[in-house]
Simulated assay, not measured.
Amino acid sequence: MKTLSPEFTAHLKTGATTLCWCWRIERRDGTVLGFTDHDNPVAFDGTTYEAAAGFTASDITDGLGLSVDNLEVTGALSSTTLTDDDLAAGRYDDARVAIYRVNWSDPSQRVLMRSGSIGEVRRTGANFAAELRGLAHYLQQPKGRLLQRTCDADLGDARCGVDLMSSAFQGTGTILAANSARRFKVDGIDSFETRFFSRGLFAFTSGASAGLKIEVKSHTKFATSVEIELWTDAEAPPAIGDAFIVTAGCDKRLETCKARFNNTINFRGFPSIPGNQFLTQIGRAS
Protein backbone atom coordinates (compact mmCIF):
# COMPACT_ATOMS: atom_id res chain seq x y z
CA MET A 1 0.00 0.00 0.00
CA LYS A 2 1.34 3.43 -0.98
CA THR A 3 1.10 6.39 1.38
CA LEU A 4 0.70 9.74 -0.37
CA SER A 5 1.14 13.17 1.13
CA PRO A 6 -2.03 15.29 1.40
CA GLU A 7 -0.61 17.69 -1.18
CA PHE A 8 0.11 14.90 -3.67
CA THR A 9 -3.33 13.39 -3.09
CA ALA A 10 -4.95 16.77 -3.72
CA HIS A 11 -2.94 17.16 -6.93
CA LEU A 12 -4.09 13.75 -8.22
CA LYS A 13 -7.71 14.62 -7.49
CA THR A 14 -7.59 17.74 -9.67
CA GLY A 15 -7.77 15.60 -12.81
CA ALA A 16 -5.15 17.77 -14.53
CA THR A 17 -1.88 16.31 -13.30
CA THR A 18 1.75 17.05 -14.12
CA LEU A 19 3.29 13.64 -13.54
CA CYS A 20 6.44 11.94 -14.75
CA TRP A 21 8.51 8.85 -14.01
CA CYS A 22 11.94 9.09 -12.42
CA TRP A 23 14.51 6.32 -12.18
CA ARG A 24 17.35 6.48 -9.65
CA ILE A 25 20.25 4.06 -10.29
CA GLU A 26 22.98 3.44 -7.72
CA ARG A 27 25.85 1.31 -8.99
CA ARG A 28 27.93 -0.94 -6.77
CA ASP A 29 30.85 1.52 -7.02
CA GLY A 30 28.67 4.23 -5.41
CA THR A 31 27.92 6.19 -8.59
CA VAL A 32 24.35 7.57 -8.59
CA LEU A 33 22.50 8.43 -11.80
CA GLY A 34 19.00 9.79 -12.36
CA PHE A 35 16.76 9.69 -15.45
CA THR A 36 13.25 10.91 -16.18
CA ASP A 37 10.78 10.71 -19.05
CA HIS A 38 9.93 14.38 -18.56
CA ASP A 39 11.30 16.88 -21.09
CA ASN A 40 13.13 18.91 -18.42
CA PRO A 41 15.47 17.79 -15.61
CA VAL A 42 13.82 17.01 -12.25
CA ALA A 43 15.74 17.24 -8.96
CA PHE A 44 15.02 15.98 -5.44
CA ASP A 45 16.89 14.35 -2.55
CA GLY A 46 20.26 15.44 -3.92
CA THR A 47 19.82 13.70 -7.30
CA THR A 48 19.17 15.41 -10.62
CA TYR A 49 17.13 13.27 -13.00
CA GLU A 50 18.31 13.79 -16.56
CA ALA A 51 15.63 14.57 -19.15
CA ALA A 52 15.20 13.05 -22.62
CA ALA A 53 17.60 10.20 -21.87
CA GLY A 54 15.85 7.84 -24.23
CA PHE A 55 14.22 5.67 -21.56
CA THR A 56 10.98 3.77 -22.16
CA ALA A 57 9.52 1.43 -19.52
CA SER A 58 7.25 -1.55 -19.98
CA ASP A 59 4.32 -2.40 -17.70
CA ILE A 60 5.24 -3.54 -14.21
CA THR A 61 4.39 -7.20 -13.60
CA ASP A 62 3.12 -7.97 -10.09
CA GLY A 63 2.96 -11.41 -8.54
CA LEU A 64 1.45 -12.84 -5.39
CA GLY A 65 3.55 -14.44 -2.67
CA LEU A 66 7.31 -14.49 -3.23
CA SER A 67 7.26 -14.37 -7.02
CA VAL A 68 9.57 -11.76 -8.52
CA ASP A 69 8.03 -8.50 -9.73
CA ASN A 70 9.74 -7.18 -12.84
CA LEU A 71 9.60 -4.73 -15.68
CA GLU A 72 11.87 -3.84 -18.55
CA VAL A 73 13.44 -0.49 -19.36
CA THR A 74 14.57 0.13 -22.93
CA GLY A 75 16.43 3.07 -24.34
CA ALA A 76 19.15 4.50 -26.52
CA LEU A 77 22.67 5.29 -25.38
CA SER A 78 22.08 9.02 -25.80
CA SER A 79 22.95 10.05 -22.25
CA THR A 80 26.49 11.28 -21.66
CA THR A 81 26.47 9.45 -18.31
CA LEU A 82 25.13 6.13 -19.63
CA THR A 83 27.79 4.71 -21.95
CA ASP A 84 28.18 1.52 -23.92
CA ASP A 85 31.58 0.92 -22.31
CA ASP A 86 30.09 0.99 -18.79
CA LEU A 87 27.36 -1.46 -19.79
CA ALA A 88 29.88 -3.79 -21.45
CA ALA A 89 32.17 -3.65 -18.41
CA GLY A 90 29.33 -4.74 -16.10
CA ARG A 91 29.28 -1.54 -14.05
CA TYR A 92 25.46 -1.69 -13.95
CA ASP A 93 25.19 -5.36 -12.97
CA ASP A 94 23.02 -5.68 -9.84
CA ALA A 95 22.80 -1.87 -9.51
CA ARG A 96 20.04 -0.74 -7.13
CA VAL A 97 17.07 0.94 -8.79
CA ALA A 98 14.29 3.08 -7.33
CA ILE A 99 11.31 4.14 -9.48
CA TYR A 100 9.30 7.22 -8.48
CA ARG A 101 6.06 8.80 -9.68
CA VAL A 102 6.68 12.52 -9.37
CA ASN A 103 4.80 15.77 -9.81
CA TRP A 104 7.38 17.57 -11.94
CA SER A 105 5.90 20.99 -11.12
CA ASP A 106 6.56 20.27 -7.41
CA PRO A 107 8.98 17.30 -6.93
CA SER A 108 8.28 17.24 -3.18
CA GLN A 109 5.04 15.53 -4.23
CA ARG A 110 6.18 12.02 -5.16
CA VAL A 111 5.81 8.36 -4.24
CA LEU A 112 8.23 5.44 -4.46
CA MET A 113 6.57 2.91 -6.78
CA ARG A 114 9.18 0.15 -6.99
CA SER A 115 12.69 -0.69 -5.85
CA GLY A 116 14.94 -3.52 -6.92
CA SER A 117 18.05 -4.20 -8.96
CA ILE A 118 19.18 -4.48 -12.56
CA GLY A 119 19.25 -8.01 -13.91
CA GLU A 120 19.98 -8.97 -17.49
CA VAL A 121 21.15 -6.19 -19.84
CA ARG A 122 20.89 -6.77 -23.59
CA ARG A 123 22.44 -4.50 -26.20
CA THR A 124 21.76 -4.12 -29.92
CA GLY A 125 23.86 -1.45 -31.57
CA ALA A 126 23.16 1.85 -29.83
CA ASN A 127 20.08 0.50 -28.03
CA PHE A 128 19.84 -1.42 -24.79
CA ALA A 129 17.21 -3.22 -22.71
CA ALA A 130 17.63 -3.64 -18.96
CA GLU A 131 15.56 -6.00 -16.83
CA LEU A 132 14.60 -4.59 -13.43
CA ARG A 133 14.00 -7.24 -10.78
CA GLY A 134 12.03 -6.78 -7.57
CA LEU A 135 13.54 -7.28 -4.11
CA ALA A 136 12.02 -10.78 -3.95
CA HIS A 137 14.71 -11.74 -6.47
CA TYR A 138 17.26 -11.94 -3.63
CA LEU A 139 15.12 -14.52 -1.82
CA GLN A 140 15.68 -16.90 -4.73
CA GLN A 141 19.47 -16.85 -4.45
CA PRO A 142 21.24 -19.90 -2.96
CA LYS A 143 22.27 -19.41 0.66
CA GLY A 144 24.46 -21.52 2.92
CA ARG A 145 26.74 -24.43 2.03
CA LEU A 146 26.44 -26.29 -1.25
CA LEU A 147 26.92 -30.07 -1.25
CA GLN A 148 29.02 -30.48 -4.38
CA ARG A 149 32.35 -31.94 -5.44
CA THR A 150 33.95 -28.56 -6.10
CA CYS A 151 34.81 -25.85 -3.56
CA ASP A 152 32.15 -23.21 -2.87
CA ALA A 153 34.53 -20.61 -1.40
CA ASP A 154 35.81 -17.64 -3.39
CA LEU A 155 39.55 -17.74 -3.95
CA GLY A 156 41.23 -15.44 -1.44
CA ASP A 157 38.21 -14.91 0.86
CA ALA A 158 38.18 -15.59 4.60
CA ARG A 159 37.01 -19.19 4.17
CA CYS A 160 39.64 -19.93 1.54
CA GLY A 161 42.55 -18.23 3.31
CA VAL A 162 44.87 -17.94 0.28
CA ASP A 163 46.83 -14.65 0.24
CA LEU A 164 46.39 -13.37 -3.31
CA MET A 165 48.72 -10.45 -2.60
CA SER A 166 51.63 -12.90 -2.44
CA SER A 167 54.04 -12.73 -5.37
CA ALA A 168 53.49 -16.47 -5.82
CA PHE A 169 49.89 -15.84 -6.90
CA GLN A 170 50.18 -12.44 -8.56
CA GLY A 171 51.92 -11.26 -11.70
CA THR A 172 52.60 -7.87 -13.25
CA GLY A 173 53.45 -6.99 -16.82
CA THR A 174 52.64 -4.95 -19.91
CA ILE A 175 50.70 -5.41 -23.14
CA LEU A 176 52.88 -6.45 -26.08
CA ALA A 177 50.21 -6.69 -28.79
CA ALA A 178 46.42 -6.57 -28.83
CA ASN A 179 44.42 -8.87 -31.11
CA SER A 180 41.15 -7.38 -29.81
CA ALA A 181 39.74 -5.52 -26.81
CA ARG A 182 39.73 -8.77 -24.81
CA ARG A 183 42.59 -10.85 -26.24
CA PHE A 184 46.24 -9.81 -26.24
CA LYS A 185 49.85 -10.90 -25.85
CA VAL A 186 51.61 -9.86 -22.66
CA ASP A 187 55.07 -9.66 -21.13
CA GLY A 188 56.11 -10.16 -17.49
CA ILE A 189 54.34 -13.39 -16.52
CA ASP A 190 56.44 -15.87 -18.51
CA SER A 191 57.45 -17.78 -15.36
CA PHE A 192 53.87 -18.91 -14.64
CA GLU A 193 52.55 -22.16 -16.12
CA THR A 194 49.78 -22.14 -18.69
CA ARG A 195 46.23 -21.73 -17.29
CA PHE A 196 47.65 -20.44 -13.96
CA PHE A 197 45.69 -17.20 -14.34
CA SER A 198 42.60 -18.71 -16.00
CA ARG A 199 39.53 -17.68 -13.95
CA GLY A 200 41.71 -15.12 -12.19
CA LEU A 201 41.33 -11.33 -12.16
CA PHE A 202 43.03 -9.00 -14.63
CA ALA A 203 43.38 -5.34 -13.54
CA PHE A 204 44.62 -2.55 -15.82
CA THR A 205 46.94 -0.18 -13.93
CA SER A 206 47.65 2.27 -16.76
CA GLY A 207 46.23 3.33 -20.10
CA ALA A 208 42.66 4.18 -21.12
CA SER A 209 41.20 1.30 -19.06
CA ALA A 210 43.18 1.99 -15.88
CA GLY A 211 41.27 0.78 -12.81
CA LEU A 212 39.13 -1.70 -14.74
CA LYS A 213 39.10 -5.31 -13.48
CA ILE A 214 37.89 -8.20 -15.66
CA GLU A 215 37.87 -11.96 -15.10
CA VAL A 216 40.35 -13.97 -17.15
CA LYS A 217 38.86 -16.50 -19.55
CA SER A 218 42.10 -18.18 -20.56
CA HIS A 219 45.84 -17.88 -19.96
CA THR A 220 48.00 -19.68 -22.54
CA LYS A 221 51.77 -19.95 -22.60
CA PHE A 222 53.32 -20.57 -26.01
CA ALA A 223 56.95 -21.21 -26.91
CA THR A 224 57.70 -17.54 -27.57
CA SER A 225 54.75 -15.63 -26.11
CA VAL A 226 52.02 -15.52 -23.45
CA GLU A 227 48.41 -14.75 -24.32
CA ILE A 228 45.57 -13.56 -22.07
CA GLU A 229 41.90 -13.61 -23.06
CA LEU A 230 39.29 -11.84 -20.92
CA TRP A 231 35.60 -12.70 -20.60
CA THR A 232 34.50 -9.22 -21.71
CA ASP A 233 36.00 -6.39 -23.73
CA ALA A 234 38.06 -3.72 -22.03
CA GLU A 235 36.57 -0.21 -21.98
CA ALA A 236 39.07 0.85 -24.63
CA PRO A 237 41.32 -1.25 -26.90
CA PRO A 238 44.51 -2.00 -24.92
CA ALA A 239 47.59 -0.22 -26.20
CA ILE A 240 51.15 -1.49 -26.34
CA GLY A 241 52.82 -0.70 -23.02
CA ASP A 242 49.66 -0.64 -20.90
CA ALA A 243 50.50 -2.10 -17.48
CA PHE A 244 48.46 -4.66 -15.56
CA ILE A 245 48.27 -6.85 -12.46
CA VAL A 246 46.79 -10.34 -12.75
CA THR A 247 45.96 -12.73 -9.91
CA ALA A 248 45.75 -16.51 -9.94
CA GLY A 249 42.55 -18.35 -10.76
CA CYS A 250 41.05 -21.53 -9.38
CA ASP A 251 38.83 -24.16 -11.00
CA LYS A 252 37.52 -25.22 -7.53
CA ARG A 253 38.88 -28.77 -7.78
CA LEU A 254 40.70 -30.49 -4.90
CA GLU A 255 43.62 -31.36 -7.18
CA THR A 256 44.15 -27.69 -8.03
CA CYS A 257 43.77 -26.61 -4.41
CA LYS A 258 46.53 -29.04 -3.42
CA ALA A 259 48.97 -28.59 -6.30
CA ARG A 260 48.69 -24.84 -6.87
CA PHE A 261 47.85 -23.42 -3.44
CA ASN A 262 48.78 -26.17 -0.93
CA ASN A 263 45.50 -25.32 0.78
CA THR A 264 43.58 -28.59 1.07
CA ILE A 265 42.95 -27.93 4.78
CA ASN A 266 40.59 -25.11 3.73
CA PHE A 267 39.00 -26.90 0.76
CA ARG A 268 35.24 -26.33 0.96
CA GLY A 269 34.01 -28.99 -1.43
CA PHE A 270 32.99 -32.64 -1.01
CA PRO A 271 35.18 -34.54 -3.52
CA SER A 272 33.97 -37.96 -2.32
CA ILE A 273 30.26 -37.21 -2.46
CA PRO A 274 28.33 -39.93 -4.37
CA GLY A 275 27.08 -38.92 -7.80
CA ASN A 276 23.63 -39.38 -9.32
CA GLN A 277 24.59 -42.76 -10.76
CA PHE A 278 25.33 -44.11 -7.27
CA LEU A 279 22.11 -42.68 -5.84
CA THR A 280 19.94 -44.24 -8.54
CA GLN A 281 21.49 -47.71 -8.43
CA ILE A 282 19.17 -50.60 -7.68
CA GLY A 283 19.97 -54.02 -6.28
CA ARG A 284 20.19 -56.88 -8.75
CA ALA A 285 20.21 -60.62 -8.04
CA SER A 286 23.57 -62.21 -8.79
Rank of each mutant, 00 (worst) to 15 (best):
H219F: 15
R159M: 07
R182I: 00
A210H: 00
R195L: 14
T194N: 05
G200Q: 09
A177Y: 14
S167R: 08
I214M: 06
S180T: 14
S209H: 06
I214Y: 00
D190L: 06
G188T: 02
F169T: 01
L212Y: 00
F202N: 04
A168M: 03
A181F: 10
F192P: 02
G207V: 12
V162S: 05
I189H: 08
V162I: 14
D163L: 11
V216S: 04
G156D: 08
G207L: 09
L164H: 03
F197E: 08
S167M: 09
M165H: 07
I189W: 10
F197Q: 14
S206K: 01
E215C: 05
I175S: 06
S191T: 10
E193Y: 11
G200N: 11
E193I: 10
L212G: 02
T174L: 00
G156S: 13
S206H: 04
G207T: 05
K185Q: 13
F169H: 15
A210Q: 03
D187V: 07
G161S: 10
S191W: 03
F197S: 10
A208P: 06
A178P: 10
R199W: 15
N179Q: 15
D190Y: 05
G188D: 01
N179L: 15
R183H: 11
T172S: 12
A181Q: 06
S167K: 06
L212I: 08
F204S: 04
Q170R: 14
A178K: 04
L164D: 03
T172C: 01
R159A: 15
R182V: 00
F192N: 02
A208M: 01
A203P: 00
G161Y: 02
D187K: 11
I189P: 06
D157G: 09
G207P: 04
T172R: 13
C160S: 03
T194A: 11
E193F: 10
A168T: 12
N179C: 03
G188M: 01
K217R: 14
S167Y: 01
L201I: 14
A177L: 11
A178F: 09
D157P: 10
A210I: 01
S166D: 14
F184K: 06
F202V: 12
T172G: 08
D187G: 12
C160L: 06
L164N: 02
S180L: 10
S180K: 10
K185F: 13
F204T: 02
F202P: 03
I175G: 08
A177M: 05
M165Y: 03
K213Q: 13
T194V: 05
V216Q: 06
F204Y: 09
L176R: 13
